[in-house]
């Protein structure tokens, strides 16, 4: 929280230096995120994939693993959900939705769990690098699928896949964007919370994260839990992709709404990996992004300022020792001054 306050203040200074009115700009940002029912709908809808993928990143963090490749697992989820969404026909709508969602979840889990998990567990390959590389492979794979001549390319000039059958789409709750997807996010947060804190598997997973050596002596198989944690993490990111594409785009294409998997890492960090914190942090970053566009329209301040803020927040979250160091430095100075004062008094 402190990190975001400091970041927002720095952002205000930058805006003021460049001759913009920071209060008006931030006002526009807040109105743009929550001011109208349309804004609220977009903010809540944008928070759903962030929350789901953020839960995924948080689960891996709990096991001491850094899943930086949620973006790729997200896209694998999108790809599989879309493929199932337009290949299968004749299923009842609810069942079709369910098949797509389950497919996306499993695919994300396999993408994130198998190769990075096994490479980490048995060859010691660092998961930051492998999940990141898998992420790029997924994105290029998706681009290949929908490029002209690719297996999922829909007839026409645009690089995009055919549309998912309409019956499988998620129902709109609050136009234009908020759908039943929001229940997936809340449900997943509850499941992750219960799983992390109230099951044996969750306990062991946290034990591996807290101290892998102690966990091994306690009889927990560290390789199994490494693969499991990365797999579960990938499942949630895949679910995010599946739910998002069933809710909004309804087809595979590269639009403006990419990058959820990366922001999800920020979400998990800010929430300190607590499932309910993830929901709040997802809402915060979604509001920042939705409101940022309104800020650009109203105050002419480019919406990329919100990226600057996000970067600063992550920096301050990582550099949390800046606070005790500053306090210590302040105390030392005050202590030195007191010493000087007492020395003077003693001299009198």
């Amino acid at each position: 929280m402190l990190a975001s306050v400091v970041a927002i203040l720095i952002g205000a200074v930058i805006a003021a230096v460049l001759g913009f009115n920071p209060l008006a700009a931030y006002g526009a940002l807040v109105t743009g995120a929550f001011g109208t029912s349309m804004a609220l709908s977009s903010t809540l809808a944008g928070a759903v994939p962030l929350a789901l993928a953020g839960l995924g990143v948080a689960v891996a963090f709990r096991a001491g693993l850094f899943n930086i490749g949620a973006e790729g697992q997200y896209w694998i989820g999108v790809i599989v959900a879309v493929w199932l969404g337009y290949h299968l026909t004749g299923l009842p709508g609810w069942l079709h939705t369910l098949v797509c969602v389950v497919g996306a979840t499993l695919a994300g889990g396999l993408w994130g769990g198998v190769i990075p998990g096994l490479a980490k567990a048995y060859r010691g390959a660092h998961e930051v690098i492998t999940t990141m590389m898998m992420s790029y492979i997924a994105i290029y794979f998706g681009q290949y699928l929908i490029a002209a001549g690719g297996p999922m390319h829909a007839p026409g000039y645009n690089a995009q896949s055919p549309q998912i059958v309409k019956d499988a789409w998620l129902t709109v709750l609050l136009p234009p964007q908020l759908t039943t997807a929001v229940f997936f996010a809340i449900g997943a947060a509850l499941v992750v919370w219960w799983g992390t804190f109230h099951t044996t598997v969750g306990f062991r997973l946290r034990a591996v994260g807290a101290n892998p050596h102690a966990a091994r002596y306690a009889g927990i198989s560290v390789p199994v839990y490494t693969v499991l944690a990365l797999g579960l993490s990938g499942m949630l990111a895949g679910l995010a992709g599946g739910v998002q594409v069933l809710a909004l785009d309804h087809r595979l294409m590269w639009g403006f709404n990419t990058g959820y998997g990366y922001t999800a890492i920020v979400v998990a960090l800010m929430a300190r990996n607590h499932p309910f914190g993830v929901l709040l942090a997802a809402l915060f970053f979604s509001a920042l992004s939705t409101g940022g566009q309104n800020m650009q329209m109203v105050s002419q301040l480019p919406s990329s300022l919100t990226d600057v803020l996000t970067g600063l927040i992550v920096f301050f979250v990582a550099a949390e020792r800046i606070v005790p160091l500053t306090i210590a430095w302040y105390r030392r100075r005050r202590g030195a001054r007191a010493q000087v004062a007492s020395a003077r008094e003693g001299g009198r």
């Binding site: 930058i14 930086i68 600057v308 996000t310 970067g311 992550v314 920096f315 990582a318 550099a319 160091l325």
Partner: peptide, 27 residues
């Protein structure tokens, strides 16, 4: 000096730089 997580810091730098350069380009 602050012994911060280097991967997280690297991410922060990437997001910050992407935002800052876009922001300065437009302003």
């Amino acid at each position: 000096r602050l012994a911060a997580d280097q991967v997280v810091l690297g991410m922060a730098v990437n997001i910050f730089a992407s935002g800052l350069t876009a922001f300065l380009l437009n302003t």
